[in-house]
Nucleic acid binder design. Structure first.
Lengths: 342, 342
DNA sequence: TTGTAGGCGTTATCAG
DNA sequence: CTGATAACGCCTACAA
């Protein structure tokens, strides 16, 4: 049915070995013969069977990608970055998502073994144990935003703590003393780091941590919306709300607007990620810029390098720097009408 | 290095045939033997080499997915839908993006041949000719949002014309007579269909088409922003702006807000797609709902069915229905003379 | 119920 | 420079 190398060889009047040599530039072939073979190959629309090839070369030229639930702009960007890097080096992407839960993660991991040369795993919900036990021993892997303490696998992550710290410090510098945080959810690595940055910045600014002003969300707009409503219902609401990502910040903006609060006149709002649309929100969102596509790109490049057997960089754990992006959604707190503390 | 079926056989003291039978449930094996084999398989963490297997079964259990440039929420949703359906049926997704241009499309298509059992192709920028010439003859394919006139391949698309028509009719019913359209760009299939719906609805509402009120964008927030600025500069600006997708509508909102226009008091704004965050915009965006993830899901299911050799549905071309979602961003046009005094 | 052996499409190793 | 031919890991008749 499908044309094989034999068909090409027969048609061109040569042996399969010669055809193979032409197609892979792996050996000397005379000009005219090579030319004829190329012609026949094109005419027959022949494409080598990658499975058969990988059988002998032990390479699939494919990277496995394991992601959590896909949502929003974030993953489009991430995948875009990985794809760009992969294509440039002749690799394909075998994608599998929705593996926040453990059993699905294990299944997906197993299913990939054998069809990929390496794996990129993003699994902000799983603990080191589960990761270790399921990561393939035989192929290299790069982790994204994972809770990996040691250096057994290279990990790429966002500098969440510093990013959140910078943001909260910025808010404090604007004069805010009641700064709320809507976190991305317990058990999520990025979310917890961002919260750590928040807490640390409060302390560094000499502000007291207030449980009333910390709410757990789940990185969705809906959870940000609900969180803001809850915060507004507090006896003394916050003057600034720092959301764990832009999606939740959007939900926060929505709730504030609905409640008749002006941003930033009444309440300041800040996000994290700085997705492309952040600057087009009303008002434009102050956020922490994360180079998402670059993270994807780096992960792929790093994996490909380690597949190729390149020397492993000394520092396996790499943190991507963030950048504070100040826009109109944050300003000074409103003049205190009630008591001012401390 | 990697463990093979032979290792398992040796370790379990049986032949490779028996191991194979156990792993594929393809033949009678005695209980105790099967049990031992399963144990050894697990202990050795053996996973069959998919390439070798596909060599003989002629199946890869992989779907190839060719997408244009990834952006925004749209593609996260789409991929999520495809992945969900694929996983449920034991298929993997081999993803490749950024193929708006012809040569890249051809390369990507060729690279996939041989590693997939079927292909999902989304290529709103390419013409039928190019598509035909590059679509694989040997594996089934499903097209998304493609300009395919005949029925050679099944096509799934959004009912863009009806969606746009409904929206514009809605705006006209609110009293708008100067309705602008920011289109998604010439050469993009979805964009052109939406524009057709816009034009048709104008006519049906007895409104005259006005070139001054039609601007070409490219589905990005930035282009929506620029378009709105241009529209505001018109001698007589529109009272409603219908953007070809939500991203551009976001840009429009941003520009209007910056120009001090109130939405919907001064100008109404509508989008298309109804991405998850549309309801959380300020103001919440009136849009045309498109079941994006369902489209991905259906595409995958349909492809898998045709791989399995299921009977092909009579109507190969399937249009997904859209739904008007009315929110606060659209209202009646301002009174003719009494322009807002703010 | 189990084992043996042939072959799937490639590439790599030899001879020529 | 070119052509046989032996792997690669697996599945599947066919034989036992």
């Amino acid at each position: 049915m499908a044309t094989t190398i034999k068909d090409v060889a027969r048609e061109a009047g040569v042996s399969v070995a010669t055809v193979s040599r032409v197609l892979n530039n792996s050996g000397p072939v005379s000009k005219p013969v090579a030319e004829r073979i190329r012609q026949v190959t094109a005419a027959l629309r022949y494409v080598p069977h990658s499975g058969a090839r990988s059988l002998i070369t032990a390479r699939t030229n494919t990277l496995g990608v394991l992601l959590p639930d896909l949502y929003g702009e974030f993953f489009s960007e991430l995948i875009r970055g990985m794809d760009r890097a992969s294509q440039a080096r002749g690799y394909h992407l075998l994608l599998s998502s929705a593996h926040s839960a453990r059993p699905e993660f294990e299944t997906a991991m197993r299913a990939m073994r054998g069809r990929v040369d390496g794996m990129i795993v993003m699994s902000p919900h799983l603990d080191s144990r589960t990761l270790y036990e399921n990561l393939p021993g035989n192929v290299p892997a790069v982790l994204l935003s994972c809770a990996m303490r040691d250096e057994r696998y290279p990990v790429l992550s966002i500098d969440n703590v510093a990013g959140a710290h910078t943001m909260v410090t910025h808010l404090a510098a604007l004069g805010h003393r009641r700064i709320a945080h809507v976190s991305g959810g317990r058990g999520n690595h990025d979310a917890e780091e961002r919260q750590r940055g928040f807490v640390k910045a409060l302390r560094d600014a000499g502000l007291k941590r207030n449980p009333q002003l910390e709410i757990e969300g789940d990185f969705t707009e809906a959870s940000g919306y609900a969180a803001a409503q809850a915060l507004l219902a507090r006896p003394v609401p916050p003057t600034a709300i720092f959301a764990g990502n832009d999606a939740m910040a959007i939900g926060v903006l929505s709730a504030l607007n609905e409640a008749g609060k002006r941003v930033p006149a009444d309440v300041s709002v800040a996000g994290f990620d700085d997705v492309p649309l952040a600057r087009y929100l009303t008002p434009p969102l102050t956020s922490v810029h994360v180079p998402i596509d670059e993270m994807g790109e780096r992960a792929a490049n790093r994996l490909i390098a380690s597949i190729a057997g390149d020397a492993i960089p000394r520092r396996r754990h790499e943190r991507l720097a963030t950048r504070l992006v100040v826009r109109a959604s944050c300003g000074h707190p409103p003049k205190q009408k009630g008591r001012s503390r401390s």
